[in-house]
Simulated scan of single mutants.
Amino acid sequence: MKKFLLFISNGSEMLEISPFIDIFGWNKIVGDKKEKIDIVTISYENFVNATWNLILKAELKFNEDIMYENEYDGIIIPGGFGNAGYFRDIKEERFQKLLKKFYEKDKLIIGICTGAIALGEAGILKGKKATTYFLDNKRYFNQLEKFGAIPVMETIVQDKNIYTTANPESALIMGFKLLEKVTSKENMEKVAFNMGYLYLVKK
């Protein structure tokens, strides 16, 4: 069995949360049944104020005393908006410690869009190729150098066990990429086909 934490902060963007839940939910119905894969939502409190006035209920309430890095195969950090409290939440020391623990255990770490800023704040992008949101005025992308990262203006960038992505659309692509990584290309294509994403299926 494989399990991934999906950390939802205040201000997280729904389009960067839902693809992982939906894709792996569909995988349980139409995908490979050989291995169970769970995406488990977690947040500081039971309820989270996501972007655009959505209130979400996470499955787990974050507890600093629990060694999540020993139980989970990786962690996914959706991006979000500062005016909804996102950057305040990801700069919390307890959250940065959590990311460092996953990094020290060589677990898979995925930062979607401005979620890459969370990885930078935790100090785990030093010397790593990374991307983040680079449209509008590049104010987030320009922060990568401050964290010691090597900025790459691409939609998805992988550096060993760390993935960073550049926009809300990339969450869907990354969701299918993760499914392929933990199962197989054939299984990913089967799930994508059944979800109607025919452009992802090999002709």
Rank of each mutant, 00 (worst) to 15 (best):
F4A: 01
I8D: 01
S9P: 05
N10R: 03
L15P: 02
D22T: 11
I23P: 02
F24A: 00
G25N: 07
I37V: 06
D38G: 00
V40I: 15
N46A: 15
N49I: 06
A50E: 11
T51C: 14
N53Q: 11
N53T: 05
L56M: 15
E59G: 15
K61F: 12
F62C: 03
F62K: 04
Y68W: 00
N70I: 14
I76D: 05
I77E: 13
G79T: 08
F81N: 10
Y86P: 03
Y86S: 00
D89V: 10
I90V: 13
E92L: 12
E93P: 00
E93W: 01
K97D: 09
L99I: 15
F102H: 09
K107R: 12
K107C: 07
L108G: 13
G115Q: 03
G115L: 12
L119K: 05
L119I: 11
E121N: 15
E121Q: 10
I124S: 12
K126I: 01
K129M: 02
T131V: 01
F134Q: 04
K138C: 12
Y140K: 05
N142E: 07
L144I: 08
E145I: 10
K146N: 14
A149Y: 00
A149G: 03
A149M: 05
P151A: 04
V157H: 03
D159P: 10
N161V: 06
I162K: 05
A166K: 10
N167D: 12
E169A: 15
A171V: 11
G175K: 00
F176K: 07
K177T: 11
L178E: 01
L178R: 03
L179W: 10
L179E: 09
E180H: 05
V182G: 00
S184Q: 05
V191P: 04
F193H: 08
N194E: 15
Y197S: 07
L200G: 10
K203C: 08
